[in-house]
Simulated assay, not measured.
Amino acid sequence: MWRRSPLGGELELCLVHRPKYDDWSHPKGKLKRGEDWLACALREVAEETGYAARPGPYLHAVHYVAQDRPKEVRYWAAEAGAGRFVPNDEVDRLLWLPPAAARERLTQPRDGALVDALLTALHLT
């Protein structure tokens, strides 16, 4: 999820901190039975961040193994809409960061590719 900074209009990306894993990542979650991928992405962003998101272009999928199980997460460029973050058990912190700072803060190196994909989708590279 991205937005234009309310202070200067610069591009900012949303990162969330998950206390269970003590990591910083892009908002993401699990697909429910019968749910399509985009609906899942929008639901999870809202649940984790408190913000509605307006979907944009599809970015790409990330595949990895966690706890000996294969995982797939599909990402879209999504502009932040109305909302307000409230810390919860799943996500206790949220940051809005410029792309370079977001790339540095992300825990998993593979997540940095999403920063590049977003910049390309927004025609900023």
Rank of each mutant, 00 (worst) to 15 (best):
L15V: 13
L118P: 01
A113M: 04
R33G: 10
R69W: 09
L118N: 06
L11Y: 06
G83T: 03
R84A: 15
R105S: 04
L124C: 02
A41P: 08
A117M: 06
H26M: 11
R18Y: 08
Y58T: 11
D36M: 07
R74D: 01
R4Y: 08
E35D: 03
V65G: 01
P27T: 08
R103H: 08
E90A: 11
E35F: 06
V86A: 13
V73S: 06
Y21A: 12
A100E: 15
A101Q: 15
L94P: 00
E12W: 04
L95P: 00
Q108P: 01
W37T: 13
A80V: 10
R33S: 12
L114I: 09
R18Q: 14
A66T: 04
A53K: 04
G29Q: 07
L59P: 11
N88Q: 15
R54M: 09
L114C: 03
A46H: 12
A102D: 02
K28W: 09
R103Q: 10
K71P: 01
Q108R: 10
L31D: 00
P98D: 13
R110C: 04
Q108T: 02
L122G: 05
L95Q: 07
H26P: 09
E48W: 02
W96Y: 11
T49G: 07
G81F: 01
R3L: 01
T49M: 10
R93W: 05
E10Y: 05
G112T: 09
K28E: 11
T107M: 02
E12K: 01
A41C: 06
N88F: 11
V86K: 15
L97Q: 08
D23I: 15
T107K: 14
P6G: 15
A113F: 11
P55E: 07
E10N: 07
D36E: 10
D68H: 10
R93D: 10
G81Q: 07
E44P: 03
E12L: 12
T120C: 00
L38R: 11
K32S: 06
G34L: 04
S25W: 01
A61S: 15
Y51K: 10
K30V: 10
Y75T: 10
P6D: 14
L97F: 06
Y58F: 15
E79W: 12
P55Y: 12
D92N: 10
L118Y: 09
A52T: 14
G50V: 09
P19A: 13
N88I: 04
A82D: 01
D22H: 15
F85G: 03
F85V: 06
V91S: 05
R93Q: 13
R105Q: 10
W24F: 06
L95Y: 02
P57T: 14
H63C: 09
A46W: 13
G56E: 00
L38K: 11
G50L: 09
L15Q: 05
A53Q: 08
